[in-house]
Design a binder for these strands. Structure first.
Lengths: 129, 129
DNA sequence: ATTCGTCTCCTACTTATGTAGTAATTTAGC
DNA sequence: GCTAAATTACTACATAAGTAGGAGACGAAT
């Protein structure tokens, strides 16, 4: 049932944690810490707090394995990415996805090789989409 | 000098306000309220609070015109959009702009005609980028 | 001049986010 | 069996974000 969390509601550092969880699947606080890059390190208990809060919010499930708590994502990453992206587009590009795309292409985000990559996706997806 | 605000730090409703300001240029609290859509209405003083906080943060300047405060954006929208987009890509698409682009293309955001539009941009920008 | 509406300024309260300490518990070594 | 390291559970505190009320000033209408 997982109290239907408001999609998009992840904060910056929550994203950091969640990204690890989606990667690791079923990890302990220690696992998370070990996986986090230097600049994302926090006190052990800080990580625990995030984990617990994410459980409360319905993003993670928790189960005990011996004495250790293991956490696991409840919602597929795609779904969260989708919500976050929609919300972002809404705010920043007044709801226009193509506007974002145009921005990406025109501004420094995409380089020559990226364009090539995207063109390839276009080539493939275009005919049967 | 405007105390160099952390780019990207705008919250959801701050975006709503700022979007109006970029549109209106130099507006009063009343102007903002009148411009906001139904579902973004708040108490008059709530809007005022947002405006004042945005001034503190260095996003807006304020000047009195008679008895009324007029607010004006300090930073061009493009710049803020840029910071927000970078930060978003960092979090959600692990820093890969092309990954976002691919997502946009593959998932519901872009339809056939959008693709055409983007392809045109690609055609043009490709050779001299 | 008194009143009404509007606006500013200041204050306040709630929930969320960021961050972490402490006490108690567990377990792995000696 | 006792100690050290790791972990959990609980508590705490600061700042940000969200939302708004009240007091007082000011200008317009009467």
């Amino acid at each position: 049932m997982s109290k239907n969390p408001k999609i998009d509601a992840l904060s910056k550092f929550e994203w950091t944690i969640m990204n690890e969880l989606w990667e690791l699947e079923n990890a302990s606080a220690r696992d998370i810490i070990d996986a986090l890059p230097e600049n994302s390190q926090r006190a052990y208990t800080t990580i625990q707090t995030y984990l617990e809060r994410l459980v409360e919010k319905g993003y993670l499930s928790k189960k005990k394995a011996g004495n250790v708590n293991l956490y696991q994502t409840v919602i597929p990453r795609d779904e969260i990415v989708d919500g976050a992206t929609n919300s972002f587009i809404e705010r920043v590009f007044q709801g226009s996805g193509s506007s974002l795309a145009a921005y990406l292409i025109k501004n420094k985000q995409l380089r020559k090789d990226d364009l090539e990559q995207i063109r390839q996706i276009l080539e493939e997806g275009d005919d049967d989409a």
